[in-house]
Simulated scan of single mutants.
Amino acid sequence: MTHARGGAADRPTGPGLPGSGHHEPGGPEVPEGALEPAELRAGDVRPGAEEVTPVRPAPGRPATAKRARPTRISGTWVAVIAGLVVLIVLLIFILQNLDSVTVHFFGAEGNLPLAIAMLFSAIGGAALVALIGGARILQLRKQARRR
């Protein structure tokens, strides 16, 4: 049977060669069809150890190490740390502005610390912006589905 690397008919035969059925005195007998050493196989093109050369980077370009891409978890940690910093600054602001003020809103009137009044107004503004932004996102999604 022959195959891509050469069959028994492709192998050289003669005294002392594997696959020939002959053997030198004192040498081991290689039966017909046995695997022979790589250097005797026809079509073996693997390089030897002396032929392998290391690959070097192109001249003029410094070899730079790849930077690791940020992950979702690292982004979450950055957000948590930024949130803690904002909360600490907000707490300091509240503690320094505890003077009571009178607040009027749509006919309602009340006394509360200045910092708390400002915090409520900031939360109300953020909620208003979030509602308008969410409505715009829904509008754009609906428009994209139509296309």
Rank of each mutant, 00 (worst) to 15 (best):
V80D: 08
D44T: 02
P62W: 02
E50R: 14
A115R: 13
E50D: 11
L40I: 00
L40M: 14
A126E: 06
G27C: 12
N111L: 15
P70F: 12
W77R: 12
L35W: 09
Q96W: 00
V129W: 00
E32N: 07
A108Y: 09
I88P: 00
R147M: 05
S74R: 13
K142T: 13
A82G: 03
K142D: 03
G14F: 14
I132Q: 04
Q139L: 02
A130I: 10
G7W: 03
A38E: 12
T64H: 04
P59Q: 03
R141L: 11
P12Q: 10
V85T: 11
H23S: 05
A49G: 05
L84P: 06
A42F: 07
A58I: 15
P15L: 10
L87V: 05
P25A: 12
T2Q: 15
M1S: 07
G6H: 03
P37E: 09
S20C: 08
K66I: 00
R69C: 04
A126R: 12
P70H: 07
L140W: 02
G26T: 08
G26A: 04
V52I: 15
G134Q: 08
I94D: 08
M118S: 07
A130R: 01
A42M: 10
G134N: 10
L131P: 00
P54M: 09
R46F: 07
I116S: 12
G43F: 01
H22E: 08
A108P: 02
L98G: 13
R136E: 02
R41I: 02
E32M: 13
I123G: 02
G27W: 01
P62V: 15
P59Y: 06
A135S: 10
L40Q: 12
G19F: 09
R69F: 10
I123E: 01
I132H: 05
A122P: 06
V80F: 03
L90S: 04
E32K: 10
K66Y: 10
A4Y: 13
L91E: 05
P28Y: 00
V89D: 03
I123Y: 06
H3C: 10
G14W: 13
G26W: 02
F105C: 06
L128Y: 04
S20K: 02
G134F: 11
P54C: 09
R61S: 05
L138A: 00
A9N: 12
E29I: 13
G83K: 10
L91F: 11
A115T: 11
A8R: 13
G19M: 07
S74F: 01
P28R: 13
E51W: 03
L128M: 09
A4H: 11
G19S: 05
E51T: 14
G27S: 13
M118F: 08
K142E: 04
G33K: 09
P70M: 15
L114M: 09
E109V: 15
A79K: 05
A135L: 13
D10H: 10
A122S: 10
S20E: 01
R136K: 07
P12E: 13
H22P: 00
A8I: 15
L112Q: 13
E36G: 15
G27K: 07
G48Y: 01
G14M: 09
G124F: 14
